[in-house]
Design a protein around this nucleic acid. Structure first.
Lengths: 246, 246
DNA sequence: TATATACTCGATACACCGTATCGTACCGAT
DNA sequence: ATCGGTACGATACGGTGTATCGAGTATATA
């Protein structure tokens, strides 16, 4: 937009016709927060692969290298994005003796965040996140179970929280994979309906996967939410079975 | 290696001193399998981000564009890599009435493959894999539980297999994240020991995470294998609780 | 006030990526 | 022997993350 003259072209640009007093064209505070927010907006809109330092910088009216004053690497930006999402998750709490409710709220909080920002699951496959918000979430998770009836030993709490977290992570991964496939259906119907579905039908029709074919035909395809809930109940039941007799 | 003359430099290369009769310097069969194997070797050695079409092609003594005769896109290569790993997993089987054993073998098979090829978990976050080997594995998984005592309804089997799979996926994701962090410790001690550990200690010392600090201090840090096993038992117990009275 | 110095910033550049394009060199048919 | 089709791969393009370093500002000194 700024009709900036290309440098090094034609006559040597005279000093007083500089396009802008470049002293500080727009102070443009810029901060890690603003950068991370811009990156998250980009990722939410166009996926994680659309997050490039150049695009983020452009969204903030800055040059790419400007960001390196606030970040040392792109990985750091990704870590900050993940931690920012952890900051969105309401801390799980326990009401009275309801440890199941506590673990449920933990699970639902993480799941909701993961569905709100589908790229999160891809970031969690990297190194573990130890940002302040992630730590705070971990703190709240443990605290919510601390002292609950039956959870006398620390290891019991670790097992419960760990297993639920692991289940949520896996469920997110699976649902989002399916979701992306379904999205491809909706937006690019040709690709899925003309490629994947007939492909699957053809594969199943070969007779090499008889059990699979029967299951695809006969299973009651419940929606993702209740599938998640049922699996979560499974895990909670398993945890309950490990508790000392109530 | 072929001391090929740079073209367009110096005198015009005379026709009869062409470096090679380029009719077919080395027939170099090349096949999807060979390409996928090379890519997997690269990924195993240097991580998924080291897999570029250029490097894979170079490993096969070919130019980058050569691969496009066998692949339509890099994503396709990644899909093939994932499916190849599924092909390594021994199909889960059931001995007699031991449905727990069947689910255990399913879990261990997937986990072993995921640990053998740490990049696999990053690929599974994408769209669902429907390659022939993946389908065969799904077939075997369902068949292993089909007709087991208590698993009368198809939905019960789906729940069991689905939940176990989801648990394994999540556990893999977590363990590999930790593993990568630990690896950074070993190979690049400076980075972890001088950065992450003091960082964590500092964070815990702030007093903002009292429960977390206590747990980190007091918990018995069991190794990854038994942690996995314990969580898996949890899940299996939960499944058992959903079965009709034996 | 004039000048020297430190420092910050961002334009430029580099190596690498995935892949579209298309001249060319081959093969088979006429 | 000539021609037509085909397939290959060198070249090129637009993108990426980030190292480098010259220019321009602000500060300290004479």
């Amino acid at each position: 937009m700024a009709a900036r003259r290309e440098a090094g072209e034609g006559e040597p640009m005279l000093v007083w016709e500089r396009p802008e007093p470049p002293s500080r064209p727009a102070p443009s505070p810029l901060s890690r927060d603003r950068i991370v927010r811009a990156a998250i907006e980009l990722a939410d809109a166009d996926g994680l692969e659309a997050v490039s330092l150049r695009k983020v910088a452009a969204a903030l009216d800055a040059g790419p290298m400007r960001l390196y004053g606030y970040l040392s690497t792109k990985e750091e930006l990704l870590d900050l994005m993940a931690d920012a999402v952890y900051g969105e998750i309401p801390p799980p709490v326990r009401a009275g003796d309801d440890w199941r409710g506590a673990l449920r709220s933990l699970a639902h909080g993480v799941r909701a965040a993961g569905l709100r920002h589908e790229w999160l699951i891809n970031l969690l496959s990297g190194r573990p996140n130890l940002g302040p918000h992630a730590l705070a979430h971990g703190e709240a998770s443990l605290a919510a179970l601390d002292g609950a009836p039956g959870f006398d030993h620390i290891d019991t709490i670790m097992l419960a929280v760990g297993t639920v977290n692991v289940y949520v992570l896996g469920a997110l991964q699976r649902q989002i994979a399916d979701l992306r496939a379904a999205r491809a259906t909706g937006m690019d119907e040709r690709e899925w309906q003309h490629a994947a579905y007939p492909y699957l039908a053809r594969m199943l029709a070969t007779g090499r996967y008889p059990t699979l074919a029967r299951f695809v035909r006969d299973a009651s395809h419940t929606d993702a939410d209740t599938t998640f809930e049922t699996g979560l109940d499974c895990v909670l039941d398993g945890i309950a079975a490990r508790l000392p007799r109530a």
